[in-house]
Design a protein around this nucleic acid. Structure first.
Length: 580
DNA sequence: GCCGTTTTCGGCCCGACTGTTTTCAGTCG
């Protein structure tokens, strides 16, 4: 190996770019789609695709054939894919930026380039202002106005993701709107959330809502009356579109009760799940849409009042919304082995990561213990930050000794729940911990995590974390990648190596349930479990109320296909305590 | 470019909306 092989993210980006370039080049849409789905397969693969390709095994991934494997091999060997180099010379980079504007796709971008020499958003703006776009066949004044508006919007919003919000905010907003519509509709009306918010995704771009009602036009018009809604762009008997004050688009669709299952299934998505579902159905002579399932054999359309009927008619077991990401759920739903029985919030017996006023928490040990007991837990680990934590919230070795006593006292006072003396110990840049082993040995539970030096090299970070994993007193690693959803990328770390080390030393990896983290992510948690790692799901609560964050960790675990038996804290503490 | 109870060629999910058009292409989800 001359140098480190390209990461899956780098390969996926290269395939996406090549798809964009081929699209501009006028390739048939299916070829472009092939590049995009290959990019998704690479991005979501749990092992190094460059390594697979070197062994000639990348074709084992769905959507990657001989040609794409060769392109990946070229990328690994030379850092470039020859076809991309060639096409980049033909189409300036600003042209791909143009296709990111709503209403401007590859066909129009190509025409604007060839006929007017437009090669950037700036050039587009000038031409639109000079009313030169209307000289192109198929484009008119309205298109010019739309482009100027789109460019304006793009300027006002910071680069990249346009107004995505994390799940709890989206769910709260969505539930308020659903309740508002339900009130307006009254009896004979049923309103529910669909889309990515129903799939409990990390973050959400827009809200999809499904309703059945006896008065569709009135309900659709009612959307505009809700406090959360800033504006409504259209409303009719089929539904309405609007936007919230928070800048989240809302789509309300109204179905006949007999088609509610079809519409709910369609609008819940994901788009890729639906595309794969429909492609598989076509092979059986069935055509799926939000209105029903058209059977070639009878020329009849089957309407489904429930989603279960939709899946059943297609010969599939019911698929939980959290699994609908085209990550193998359709194959599993069609097979004898079937889908896993997913973990539920009620399976959780305890929480093994929480903070108190000893560090940066807002409640006392006893308050946290009572709140955990009210949630029905059998145990709660008090894991304040350690000796090198900043912000004046560090806990010195002396303070930790005192804290252990306080936890023992509170445990003795509190009936019905076991309080565990623990610590969230910082992993220092060299992999060492910031308490002596002698002190750590007095704790019931040690969870270790990275809070500093995020910018280390991948190799240094990987060695650092593996050193902590192999420490005999460390039971688990908290928020293993350090990501903050929509705010901070994970630090560079070789997760394949981390998972192997964790499996080998029986150290658990956490799904941190803080909704800004959800770290491990769904894909990473699934890969970890497949590698033989035991997962622990913790709230990382800093006050009594945020013990309830556990639900977001469960959401991630379900999206990771985890069952109760894959997760440590579904078991009694007696089974988890060291040596048991 | 991928893939096969259509298996090495000829297909490849479905429908809505928009703006521009006299019947539809392009874009989007």
């Amino acid at each position: 190996m001359p140098s480190a092989p390209p990461s899956n993210a780098v390969i996926a980006d290269a395939l996406d770019e090549l798809g964009d370039l081929y699209e501009l080049d006028g390739a048939i849409v299916h070829r472009v789609v092939a590049y995009r789905s290959a990019a998704k397969a690479v991005r979501e693969a749990s092992v190094s695709v460059a390594t697979l390709a070197a062994e000639g095994r990348a074709t084992e991934l769905a959507g990657i054939g001989k040609t794409l494997q060769e392109k990946i091999q070229a990328l690994a060997a030379t850092g470039e894919i020859p076809a991309a180099v060639k096409l980049r010379a033909k189409f300036p980079p600003g042209l791909i930026a143009l296709t990111r504007l709503p209403g401007l796709g590859p066909k129009r971008a190509r025409m604007l380039h060839s006929e007017l020499g437009i090669d950037s958003p700036e050039a587009l703006e000038q031409a639109a202002r000079a009313q030169r776009l209307r000289s192109v066949r198929g484009l008119g004044p309205k298109f010019e106005a739309n482009m100027l508006a789109a460019l304006q919007t793009q300027r006002e919003r910071p680069e990249g993701r346009g107004g995505r919000v994390i799940l709890p905010r989206a769910l709260e907003l969505g539930e308020q709107i659903v309740a508002g519509l339900q009130d307006l509709g009254g009896r004979g009306t049923h309103v529910e959330l669909a889309g990515s918010v129903r799939r409990l995704a990390d973050s959400v771009k827009d809200l999809d809502i499904v309703a059945t009602t006896t008065r569709p036009t009135a309900l659709a018009r009612g959307l505009a009356k809700l406090d959360e809604i800033e504006s409504v762009s259209s409303a009719g008997k089929a539904g309405a579109r609007g936007r919230t004050h928070a800048g989240i688009d809302v789509e309300l669709r109204i179905a006949k009760p007999s088609q509610r299952g079809n519409l709910l299934q369609h609008l819940t998505g994901s788009g890729r799940h639906n595309a794969a579902l429909r492609e598989a159905a076509v092979r059986r002579g069935l055509h799926v849409s939000e209105y029903g399932i058209l059977d070639d054999a009878t020329a009849g359309t089957l309407e489904c009042a429930t989603e279960r009927e939709v899946y059943e008619r297609l010969g599939l077991a019911y698929i939980e919304p959290e699994l609908r990401e085209d990550r193998g759920e359709l194959e599993a739903a069609a097979s004898a082995g079937g889908l896993p029985r997913l973990i539920e919030l009620g399976d959780i017996r305890g929480d093994l990561h929480s903070h108190t006023t000893a560090s940066d928490g807002h409640n006392t040990i006893e308050e946290m213990g009572r709140a955990a007991r009210e949630r029905g837990y059998e145990y709660l680990a008090i894991t304040d930050h350690s000796a090198s934590h900043g912000f004046g919230d560090d806990v010195s070795p002396e303070q930790l000794r005192r804290q252990i006593e306080l936890v023992r006292d509170a445990d003795a006072r509190l009936e019905g729940i076991q309080l565990l003396a623990g610590s969230e110990v910082n992993i220092l840049p060299d992999g060492a911990l910031d308490y002596d082993d002698e002190l750590l040995a007095e704790l019931d539970w040690v969870i270790a995590s990275v809070h500093t030096s995020f910018g280390s090299s991948e190799q240094a970070m990987t060695e650092r974390i593996i050193t902590a994993i192999e420490h005999p007193l460390v039971r688990a690693i908290a928020h293993p990648t350090g990501r903050l959803i929509e705010r901070r990328q994970p630090y560079a770390v070789d997760l394949e190596a981390v998972f192997a080390a964790a499996a080998r030393s029986a150290t658990m990896l956490e799904i941190n349930a803080n909704p800004d983290r959800r770290d491990l992510s769904d894909l990473n948690a699934r890969a970890a479990a497949r590698a033989g790692v035991t997962i622990v799901i913790d709230s990382d609560a800093h006050r009594t109320a945020t013990l309830a964050n556990m639900r977001w960790g469960i959401a991630t675990a379900r999206r990771a296909w985890l069952r109760s038996e894959d997760v440590a804290n579904t078991r009694p503490w007696a089974e988890l305590r060291r040596g048991a």
